[in-house]
Nucleic acid binder design. Structure first.
Lengths: 245, 245
DNA sequence: ATTCGTCATGTTGTCTGACAATATGATGAC
DNA sequence: GTCATCATATTGTCAGACAACATGACGAAT
């Protein structure tokens, strides 16, 4: 990687592909991560010095430092002044990315399935733990969604708030934040589905009934019913999205 | 944040707390992230120029660039040569961290609960989709664990392999990698529990029976039983860890 | 008057060199 | 042998310079 012809010197023409890095630090970061994830450098190993890496990649120390700075914040390496940079015991443990270190994209069906699983468990937990406040937040989001429907809107933002309010009702902050993370990654997917459902199939009533069923179960503190209702909602959502699970 | 007295110049003594930054880029990164997460700078807003930030924080442009480089790789900002750095539409969406942007640590009970939820769903899916190969991998890990028991070991590494093999059997790469992520964060917690269980309570047989129950359910492709068995394993694990859920 | 090229300015991207702070081994005094 | 001292190597930081790009102002050509 990083072949000579594109990295010899500042003048890297490289006008072939649409993907133009435009940032040497990106390239170097990718290269270093793949070295670590690929096992070339194992936990505890010392990386080459910044000077050596700079010469190897044909870039200045500043670029190398930017790349290593990223590796540090992602938990791939730890540096010690005067000693060097060392691969961490559990490289990459600091942050989770949906796309694996090597590949670039993740199939929507896999992501949607992950969301479906979490959502079911979240609904179940929310039914057990929701307070009156939580319930009010969930009801409020559902009401906003209905207002949006009435005004010919999609209610996408309220939809997301609805699910995030349920996640908050679990009173598990990590769970809540992860739901949020996954949900927002699916946001565009959800939006497209919502458009087609609303405009061409007129199934917003169906979606609303599913949401109402979840809310009712959470109101009644019926954990099993909440899980079932969430599962139904997500399964139908997958159908509407033409995703097969 | 980053009050003047600690960032005026290279000579930042600051010998009060145990947390010694030792890296200005860390500090600047934290400050910038908290500005964005805190809403001071909203999506689409332009950040101050690198020069201005450098003067504001009392550090050189190189440090600012390292910090912004991290923000870019975490999806907080996007930069455009000649224009500036702009807050992303969905700041921080690129990576998920267990500790929220502001706080530093996450309670083990919350993390363990998240793992328990995922593990149940994972076991259920694995029961539906496992191939013969998957089954062999799971069996192998369990066998290794038993060998470790017999040799007076803890079998911790085989334990982790057991659960990761189940995750792999779902054939959902995102789910598998997330399980791995959470599991490794809990590794130390699990290890401590395993030590106490093995040495002082002699309950390794109990653990083994729970693992075997999960395996059997997956063998039989009995999704409901797999979920139940996983739930029981995690609930008992919580007890052994003295975590109340 | 409009359009277009040119220029000046500001910003990010990169390079270079220097020094400070820290770790490590070698050297030498005791 | 022990310990202080020094030289060296490496990361952390600073400073200045130039390249690449964006933007608006200005003026010439139509």
């Amino acid at each position: 990687m990083l072949s000579d012809n594109m990295m010899t010197r500042p003048f890297a023409v490289q006008l072939q592909s649409v993907a133009r890095p435009q940032c040497l630090a990106d390239e170097v970061t990718r290269a270093l991560v793949s070295h670590i994830a690929g096992g070339d450098w194992g936990p505890g190993d010392r990386l080459p010095t910044e000077k050596a890496l700079g010469e190897q990649f044909g870039v200045s120390r500043a670029v190398i430092r930017e790349a290593i700075s990223r590796l540090k914040s992602e938990g791939y390496v730890a540096t010690h002044q005067g000693k060097g940079a060392f691969v961490a015991e559990e490289p990459g443990l600091a942050a989770f990315r949906l796309a694996a270190a090597g590949s670039d994209h993740v199939g929507n069906e896999h992501l949607f399935e992950l969301r479906a699983l979490i959502e079911q468990s979240t609904a179940e937990l929310a039914a057990r733990r929701r307070t009156a406040r939580d319930l009010a937040a969930i009801r409020g989001a559902l009401a906003d969604m209905r207002s949006a429907y009435a005004q010919d809107g999609l209610g996408l933002e309220a939809d997301i708030r609805f699910h995030e309010a349920i996640a908050a009702a679990t009173h598990n902050p990590v769970l809540g934040r992860f739901m949020q993370f996954v949900g927002r990654h699916l946001r565009e997917t959800i939006r497209l589905a919502r458009v087609s459902v609303a405009k061409y199939e007129n199934k917003l009533g169906e979606v609303d009934r599913e949401h109402a069923a979840i809310l009712t179960a959470i109101e009644r503190r019926d954990a099993a019913a909440a899980r079932t209702a969430a599962a139904a909602h997500l399964a139908n959502g997958a159908k509407r999205l033409k995703i097969r699970l």
